[in-house]
Design a protein around this nucleic acid. Structure first.
Lengths: 229, 229
DNA sequence: ACTATATAATGTAGTTTTTACACTTATTAT
DNA sequence: ATAATAAGTGTAAAAACTACATTATATAGT
């Protein structure tokens, strides 16, 4: 049994990132066009290999940083994918992560250099390998996560209007929400700060801006909420 | 980029299984006592190494079978654990799975041969490596999963009484539930068959036995239910 | 300065769901 | 016959959820 360590097979471990962003057009993901075979020219999630002395979370952070120039981003491990022929080049197990970023903050130059591009989740191209499956899982997980944890805000600017928040949740859930009911449910969570500032872009009247109140949320010491939208 | 395959590090991949069972004493897990160093004599989850030409799910199934003699068991991938020194012998990433078995069916002789043993989840011993963390995650996931999928039944005999089902959910959630409210919520899911048979062990009056109606459930074509207990 | 326009902001009544709670029934061991 | 034990059952009050329409505000255009 002890020597099972030495007799056991070693494999390549990849990390693939589903990087979510959000803007006026809706929910988006960052994809990269492969410039080498196989599947050259096809679209792919952004990924890389795990280094031997590296934790998976760190690898995901490293990869995200490399392609977006962003640090301190919400990331979450999704699932390990291990189909035998999932990568035709070599037996590779991939651990998928998803990231939620404020799309305004990414380094546009960087992603251009890497031939990366933002796509609407709704009409993303077909992806290589099992990346479509990863994306589907990520969306499902994102729906669940945003219904119990205050992570949706990661996709918005620091200051945002109720309309932006509403549209964010509509994009995540792929369904229309009633504005009044939505606002009262959000308000009942009691985790936002209403600012004196208004966003004057969207209308003549202007709409108040809000911020996520992390201190207040943490102070509640509740683990999860339930946001039934 | 292509040669990043050849330059990338390969690592050992382990699979560890949180095997849940349930009996009159409550929710249990199957643990094994290590008979080799390091951590000899300590309790551990049941695990093994992934083979090069093997899918993770298959490895989990193989490991479960080896220690319990059971096939066709509900299993679900939990998370990949990758702390650098999580296994002091060698750099090993572990993918944890949890399994739900009918505890009556396991092969008692097998687990004896392996020095495995059932423990109440409530007072399980300290486990090696990061296995305590895996167990905590597994319980959290089990709570969630049983609230949206009809998998709790996997832990019960094919025929079970409402009391058994109630006590199962109480064990999973670690809280008392109101009997009448529980029964009406379960009944409103409309996924059980009430048998003519009674369990005469528990009381003079005897309690009706039920079975999970998989056909009916599948026919509904709903993905998930919500069971707020 | 008046008006038109466009989005922001707000409240409620009806319905459904959830909760808390206690007595009767059925069986058999004595 | 009766004592004992768990099984089985219903309801009223509270809370949550749903559907829905009008008024308010700032400015751009005249």
């Amino acid at each position: 049994m002890l020597n099972s360590y030495s007799s056991a097979d070693k494999v390549l471990l990849a990390v693939d990132c589903i990087i979510f962003g959000f803007d006026h057009e809706g929910l988006k993901i960052l994809l990269i066009q492969r410039d080498f075979e196989p599947e050259k020219g096809k679209w792919s999630l952004i990924g890389g290999f795990l280094k031997k002395e590296e934790v998976l979370d760190t690898a995901a952070i490293r990869i995200l940083d490399r392609y977006t120039g962003l640090q301190d981003i919400y990331m979450e491990q999704l699932h390990a994918y291990s189909d035998i022929d999932r990568d035709p080049v070599e037996r590779t197990i991939s651990v998928a992560y998803f990231a939620l970023i404020n799309i305004e903050n990414h380094n546009a130059e960087l992603i251009q250099n890497y031939h990366a591009q933002w796509f609407s989740v709704a009409n993303a191209p077909k992806l290589i390998f099992d990346h479509d499956s990863m994306l589907r899982h990520a969306i499902r997980r994102l729906r669940y996560r945003t219904s119990i944890k205050p992570v949706g805000f990661e996709l918005l600017p620091e200051k945002f209007s109720m309309r932006q928040l509403l549209e964010l949740y509509e994009a995540i859930l792929s369904k229309e929400l009633d504005k009044r009911n939505f606002i009262s449910k959000i308000n009942s969570l009691d985790i936002l700060i209403k600012l004196d500032e208004k966003d004057m872009q969207s209308s003549r009247k202007g709409s108040y801006l809000y911020m996520f109140d992390k201190e207040k949320y943490d102070a509640k010491l509740l683990n999860d909420f339930v946001l039934n939208l």
